[in-house]
Each structure stands twice: as C-alpha cells, then as structure tokens.
Design a protein around this nucleic acid. Sequence first.
DNA 1: CTAGGGTTAG
Length: 830
Amino acid sequence: MAHTLHAKAVKDCTVLSLNVANYLLSLYVKSHNFGYAHKLFDEMPGRDVRSWTILISGLARTGSFRMVLQLFRKMQVEGVRPNQFTLSSVLRSCSSSSERLIAKGIHGWILRIGIDLDTALENSLLDVYVKCGDFRCAERLFETRKERDSIAWNIMMDGYIRIGNVDKSMDLFNRLPFQDVDSWNTIIGGLMRNGHERTALELLYQMVKNGTSFDKVTFSTGLVLASTLSLLELGRQIHGLVLRFGIHGEGFIRTSLVNFYCKCGKMEKALPIIKNVPLVHLNSLNPKTTDDEKMTEIVTWSTLIAGYVRNDDYEGALQTFVSMVREHIGVDQFTITTIASMCANLGILTLGQQIHAFIQKIGHAMDFHLGSSLVDMYSKCGSLEDARMIFKKIISPNVVLWTSMISACALHGQGREAIQFFELMIREGIKPNEISFTVVLTACSHAGLLEEGCKCFRLMKEVYHIKPGVEHFTCMVDLYGRAGRLVEAKEFIARHHISHLSSVLKSFLSSCRLHKKVEMGKWASKKLFHLKSFDAGSHVLLSNMCANKHRWEEAAKLRSLMQRRGINKLPGQSWIQLKNQVHTFFVGDRSHPRKAEIYSYLDELIGRLKEIGYSSSTAELVMQDVEEEEGELLLGHHSEKLAIAYGIISTPLGTPIRIMKNLRVCSDCHNFIKYTSQLLGREIIVRDICRFHHFKHGPKEVEEDDDDEESLSGESIKNSFRSLSLRKPNISTGIHRLFKGFKNFSQYFVYKEEMEELVMDMEIGGPTDVKHVTHIGWDGSATVNDAVMGWENLISPELLSVPSDPWRRSFDFSMAAQPDQPPLVNGSAS
DNA sequence: CTAGGGTTAG
C-alpha cells in the first residue's frame, strides 16, 4: 500500500507534506520495507522528531541495534531532541541486544538533559536493566519510583523468573497491591516457560477461584500449559470456555488452539479450527481483511503445518502449504522454513528444489533461519554443492548457518572441509556453541581425523568452556574406536564417567566389532544389557562379532535370545525416486512389476563387475553388516543393489543415480557400487542412515570415503543427525500428486520483476481510498482489489518512463539487494 | 511507538 501511495505521489509530483511523509514512512516500517523507508527518510524535505522516532522504533523491533544507535547519534548531531518515544525505542533495542552500558549511558543522559521520565519511559529503563541482568539498578529504580503501574511490577516479576528466581518473583506477586489479569498472566506464563508447569497450573486454578476472568493471553498460556503437560482435558475445557466467550474466531486464540491440538497429536481436532473460518474472510485479496488478520492467519496455518511435520504427516503438511498458496492466505518466513526443513527430512531433492525455486520466485530475503534450513535441505537431499552455494550467498552467517554448513560437509564425508569451515568461522569471530562442536567432531569421526578431533574437544572445554554432552562424548569414543585405539577409548570412557550412556557403549561396541575385539565387545554388551538398551543393533553386532571369530555357538545363542525377546530388527529398505514415483525395495524383493528385468540385469552386471575385479566374497562380508541378517544375502540381493539396478535400467546413460537406504550400506554393497560406477561411468549417490556416499566414475575419483565402509552402526553419527529422517518417510504416492499442484504455483504468484510493474501500474483514487488497496506484501500475492479499483485507471505508459522518477530507477528486486534489507546508513551499517 | 501470549533454522 505504501508503494502505491508513494507511486501516486511521485506521479503527481506532489511535494510530500511532513505529515504525509511520516505516514508513508510508518507504512514502510510497518511492512518491514526498510530499504524504502530509509530512502524516503533520506529524501524527506524536513524531518522532525516523529520521523526519526518512527524509523528508530521500527528498527528497534527488528533487532538491528547498531543501526538504531547510529540513527540515534545522527539525530543528535542534527540537533533533533529525542522525545520519550524515541528514547523508549532506543532502550528497547538496548534491551534486546543486552547493551547494559549503553542503556546506562542513556539513562544518565536523560537525567542530565532533563527529559521528563514518564511512566512508560521508566518502564523501558526498568526493562533494560532487568533484561541485562542488572537487578541492582532495576531494584533501585523500582523501589524509588513514586508511581508503579502494573507493568512495572510485571517487568520485575518476569525478570526474576527468567533468571530462575521463582521465590523472589512469587514474593513480588504476593506483594502486589492489585492482582489483575496481566499480573496473573505474567506469573503463570513465567512459571510455565521456566519449567515450573505444575506451579503454573496451580496458579491458573487459583486464578479461576479468585474470580479473575481470562483474557486472550490467559487462554493462550493456558493452552500452551495444557499441551506441555499433555493435559488434553484441560485444553478441551479451555476450548469450551473460548467457545462460551465467543472468541473462537479470533486469530490468536485459533493459533493457540491449533497449536494445542497439534502438540497433542490430535490433528483431526486442529483441522476444523482452521476450516471453520470461511476462507473468504481471510483471503489476502479480501479488502476487508486487515493486515493484522492476514498475518495472524498465516501464523495459524503455519502452526498447522508445523503440527503435521511434527506428527510425520508430510503429505498433510504439503497439502496445507499448497492450500495456503492457492487460497491466497499467503506465506511467511516461518511457513517456508518449516516446509524447507520438512524437505530436508524427506530427502527428496526435486521437492526441495521446487521449494527453493518458490522462495526465489517470491523473492523472500534469505535470513538466517531460511538460509540454514536450505543449506540443511540441500545437504540432506544429497547436494553438497548447492548447500555451499546457498551458504556463500548469505552475507554474514551466524552460528547456526555456519554449523549447518559444517554439518553438511560432515554428512558428505568432507572432514577436512568441515574443519576448514570451522576454523574460518572462528576467525570470523563467531563463537561456536555445543552443536557446532558436535558437528565438527562428527566430521572428524567420519573422516578418521583423530588428532583434529581431540584438538576440537580440548578447544571446546578449555577455550569455550562448554561442558561436553552425550553427543560429544560419543563422537570421541567413536574417533578413538575407529582408529583402533580401543584401550584409549575405554580409558576415555572411564575418565569421563560415561559408561552409563548407551550411545557411547554402542559406538564402542561397533569399534570392537570393527577391530575384532570380542572380549571388550562383551564388556560393552553387558553394560548395555544392564541399561536395558541392548537393542536389535547391539544383538546383531555382538552376534556377528562372535561369528566372525568362529564362535558360532555364542552367535547362535544371541540370535535365539533375540528371537525369544521378540526383538525385531528393522528390515533393510532402499528406495529410488524416478519421475514422480518412489520405488521401494526390500532385500531379495520380488514384488516389483519389473522384477524379471531387474534380476537378470543385476546378474549380468555382477558378472561384468567380476571381470574388472569385484568379488562378492560372502561369509566374511555378511557378518560385517550390523543390521542385515546373514540369510538375506544368501537369499538374494541387498535392497540397494536392486534399487541401483532398477535405476540403471530405467534412466538414460549417464544420469546420476540417487538412492536412499534406511540402514547402513554394507561393505559388499559399497564395493559393488564403486565398481558399478566405474564400469558404467555413472555417478551414484547413496544416502544411508547417517551419511551420503558419492561414487564417481573411475577408482581414482571415488570420494575420499575415509569413513571405512566397515564401520558399523555409526551410533555417534546417528546421534548427531537425529534430525536426518532415518525412517523411510511414508510418502509413496500421495505426495507426488501434490507435486503436480506444485508446478502450477507460478500462476498464483507474481514474479518479482512483474511486481515492479504492478507497483508502478497501480492507480488509486486518492488518500481516502487507501483501505481498498491491499498492500504489496513481500510475497507479491496481494495486489489490489480490482473489484473496487478496477484496472481501467492504469497510469499511462509515458508516465511510467519518466526518467526523473527516483523510484523507477532504484527499484531493485534482485536477490543480491533484498527489499527487506535496509541499505547502508552512513555507509557503514550492515 | 510504549511489558507479556501463539508458529521457524543447525
């Protein structure tokens, strides 16, 4: 809308009056178009305190502290005296960036210069001190105040509860001269968010007894409380109350309800809440829908999508997403990130690519969230190159993004590169956190970089003072174990008192298998057994180990033990996606319609491979696979061989073949794939339970797959990549129907380039008609309600090419200059 | 523009 108004003003060559300009500015700020906001601000004829304040407060909300401070200083240089609102915004920015000293400076400055400390400003100050943990200052300010409103009390209460001081907070609550809804909400919400759900619940009941009626926030917190405590009944009662209050149509409440039902796994209850509001009312093309309503609606739908993803219903998630686009609900960065991470878990490259294209198309800025989920998506879909490409595009990556990139390298066996990225990150001044260390250690263990791994482990403890967690320990044990340093691994376990951690023991056990140390393996197995985590994997592992050492009776005993206990191992499955279909194969699978072709080709292929040196020695190799039964190999062929054979006969020569498997690839298959790739000159990419294997033509070019194919359960890796969906997602047919819907997205969206035209093409009847023009959202989906405006009033083409039009020239929708990214201010901010 | 609620990333 701001664009439209602005375009109109420019067209009319109107000199914007200060009021109009300020109004425009606030519109830009509200719609997060800071690029334009800055431009307008710089060109404004005369700027008053309000202009400065609008810009500053907008920036304060989006968290760019440096820019806020810069503007604030510039404002003073220009001799504009800030008012309470300005100061309050600057303080808020300090508060969210924990800039205690600067806040203190501003406080002193306020006192010196003699600006009235009104209640709101005092509250802002209070808030800064509390958020920065300076309770001494906060307390002093709080106690000496003549006027303390409910907000002041709540800020204090919330502050104390945030640092875990429940007693102090409760004390304040009891001291309150008036316990209104707000204070009840604050204390209940605070308790809930700090792990005191039970106390929070008690207070909620007290609140009811007390006769304080609920407001929106209470309903919302109550529902979150119900979902974290899995109190379905409580949630339903609240739902009932909501209905009695008649506020079930309100956006925020609906989101909370949807969230509640999703978290409780009751998708069938969540869905009607979305559906019971006719789409017409929420359609972003409906002029009667306010911006707030539209945004809330997007949140509600995004919540539903997140719920589907949480409940592993990817089809539902995608279906909802498609509906959001089709029905013009619109999507926001939350929606996209959720969908992108869903693609990562699905591991379907084509779908991921479409989502990426979709993001490009709507021209959304690559923020950290989106960037990291895309890096993650590409790496989990098998394309390290694309992951790198995304990473490179983002100007100043944060920890999460760096970590995603390192994890991508780890996932693809690029240990050295992972370490390089890690070092680069540190050099860039980004502080690694515990997850960064987990992934870099994982990378080391994948690549067998023992020394580097130990260095990282020390670095983590000694320099960054991060207490190692289960994942870090497991990686370390894995590193020692794979290097054959079993004694050291055992010492490490003893030294760190981690022999009670099943993932550590499992990793140790698989190293024992690898290096054929039966006795040590038994030690670990015993421990695992006592921990009651002696699962299928461990059974098979130990049994294979015994078999390998020709201790057949023990092996057989373990097998039968496993049967008696009813422990079933996961059947091996591999799948390949061709066109819009997923083809799944079990071991020795004969259910595929083209089974005859597959098998005869496979036999032929194996014969040819043998000529160039492939040998499928059986007994020894069978035992090496942890989770495959030995009989399976005798029966026929591992699932990955079938999938690959099918892939070869169904695709043209030279097409890369991507397959996925729900277990690890055994060494025989690994060999098989290596030779196949060499023989046929095909690139083969295999995603197994914990990483990717790349095979390129020719033995020389085979990836530096230092992760010896014999390494077994990869427990540590599984652990670090919990989010890599290990199961085969259940998506065989339905999702591909949705693919079709996906391809048609373009017709619902306006291309970025066209957006520029639209902005300029829109004609409006005058300021009073503002409400009939739907704003140009970042997604370009909302254009103008042409029922009201009509398209017959288009600006004439000559006008559009007026060279003096500053906006015409400066519109830049290229990905490099994101509309959401503010331009440089003073040439130095970022 | 002036506390606090709901959805997102490694």
